[in-house]
Structures are given as C-alpha cells and as structure tokens.
C-alpha cells in the first residue's frame, strides 16, 4: 500500500521534520525477539521501518548486517516468517510504513507473483532490493509497482546526473541516498557533501530523499536531518542487538537496547530543524 508511505511523509512535512527510518533484520537473533523489537520501534521514535530479509550472500553489506543475517538464518528465519513478522506488526499498527529490504534471490525463489500478493496481504508498503538496478526493472520492480507496492531505489555517489533519471524513473515512496561508496556500516561522509547530493537529487524528483549509510548517533542524525527528508539508521541498531547477546542468544536487555538507542537517535532527528 503506497498510501501509508505517502501519508507518513506528508504528515512529517507538515511538522517540518525529517523521517526517522530504522532498519533491523527479520528474525535477528530469533523470531520472537525480532518481533518484539519491531513492534516497539514506532513508540521509540521510528517513523518508517525497514525490515531486512536475511540472505546468505549480502554483497553490499558490512560486517554488522552480515552477522545479523547469519544469526537470523541460523535461528531458522525464512521468507514466510519474515512476512509473518509484518502481518503480526500490522495487528496493532496500521500507519507506520514497512519496507522490506534485501536481495533478489530469496524473492525469485519464493516466486515473484506469490511474493507480491503475500507482501500486500501482510501489510508491506515498499521494497528495497539491493541487486535490482533499473536495467532489470522488468524482473520485479514493474510488477511490484503495478500491484501497489513502493519500489524504493538507492541512489549513490556514482549515480551521476546522466544516470539519475533512469534510477528515478520507476522509484516511488522515497529515494534512498547512499551517502558514500561502500558497504553498510562504514564511516559517515562529510555532511556538506551529503547536503549537496540531496539537493542534486531533489533537482530531479519531488519524492522525499532519505539518507543512509554511516549514521550512528543522535548527533549524526541531527546533522544529516537538516537537509535530508529522512535519516536511515541500520548498522548501529543491528550492532546494538549483536552487543546485547550472550552466546548468540537474546538476553533481557536485547529489546530495550535497540529501543533505547532508537529513542536517543530520535531526539537528534527531531532537533535537526528545530
């Protein structure tokens, strides 16, 4: 449903503040803990939730998210269970947009048409598929958009002005600007460059532009949130889960570790334009 996404960004624009987009991995470190983490994200300050679909070979991810995916897979997570997490979340929350993020193969194996139908029923709003560039739009992007899902595309520093229109052509919901060349969880880029890039992309689209890769603290979020329409935090949250574990298993502190960090970074997001 694209309506939830559009309504959320419209409401935030009204409040003149950037969106806080949080990423966690479905099933990390186990199904129930991940469900509790995700269910509590909106109350902790998240505006949009990205849920990672674990994959054995996450080629664009740094160590934190790789490990999160491995933990989830070892705990028995699969695509059916990932969609179940979204369905469960929707029982109590019908306004927070949910974006599934991951790689194409698990969707391809699930079956493109079945996946789209099941994702809509579960209450998914958008998709970010890292290894589907516009050159492969016919595979999955076009049928997903036709069915009413947002297809959120990554734009990167290597996406120049000549290429940007092709990247934006079938993008909906928001544009995810990856603030550097590199994998998830690397160091944050210079905020001035980021502002320039956000403005460059805004010159090509009316969609909100959210910025991710390297944002770890409230201070980072505050700086980036001045110019971006949204701030994406992933590796830091996933690391908070990793750090809370004992012998690879969730502890009493796991869920609160994520929610406390989200609440803290949310303050930065809310202060960005205050």
């Amino acid at each position: 449903m694209t309506a939830r996404m559009d309504a959320k960004f419209a409401a935030l624009k009204e409040q003149n503040r950037p969106a806080f987009v949080t990423f966690v991995m479905a099933g990390d470190p186990d199904f129930d803990t991940a469900q509790a983490v995700i269910n509590g994200l909106p109350a902790a300050g998240a505006d949009v939730i990205e849920v990672g679909m674990p994959f054995s070979d996450p080629m664009a991810d740094g160590p934190a998210i790789q490990l999160a995916g491995q933990r989830a897979l070892e705990a028995g997570q699969d695509m059916k269970k990932t969609l179940q997490i979204v369905r469960n979340f929707r029982e109590n929350d019908d306004t927070t947009p949910i974006v599934l993020m991951g790689y194409y193969n698990p969707i391809y194996i699930y079956g493109v048409d079945t996946f789209i139908a099941d994702a809509l029923v579960a209450g998914v709003d958008g998709l970010i598929i890292v290894d589907l560039p516009p050159e492969e739009d016919e595979e999955f992007c076009l049928p997903a958009i036709k069915a009413g899902l947002n297809f959120i595309r990554l734009a990167t520093p290597t996406t120049d002005d000549a290429r940007l229109p092709a990247v934006l052509a079938n993008t909906s919901g928001f544009v995810y600007y990856v603030s550097m060349t590199g994998v998830t969880g690397s160091a944050l880029s210079n905020p001035t460059d980021v502002a320039e890039q956000v403005n460059r992309i805004k010159g090509h689209t009316d969609l909100p532009v959210c910025v991710g890769f390297g944002i770890k603290t409230a201070a980072d979020a505050e700086r980036i949130g001045k110019d971006a329409d949204g701030v994406v935090v992933g590796s830091a949250l996933v690391s908070a889960i990793g750090d809370s574990l004992k012998d690879g298993k969730a502890t009493k502190g796991t869920v609160s570790a994520v929610h406390d960090l989200v609440a803290d970074i949310a303050k930065g997001v809310r202060a960005a334009r205050a």
Binding site: M59, A60, Y104, V130, D131, L132, P133, E135, E136, R153, L154, A155, T156, P157, T158, T159, D160, R163, V167, V178, T181, G182
Partner: peptide
Amino acid sequence: ERGRFGDFGGRFVAETLMPL
C-alpha cells in the same frame, strides 16, 4: 544487449556498481 543468454546472465548488481 542486456547481457542475457536466453533467460540467464544479466546485471543484478547494486546501484553503486552499475555505472562501473
């Protein structure tokens, strides 16, 4: 032109790599 041998092949890479 799309790098396909029948249904196989293609260019399934992250956007950062696509221009390369």
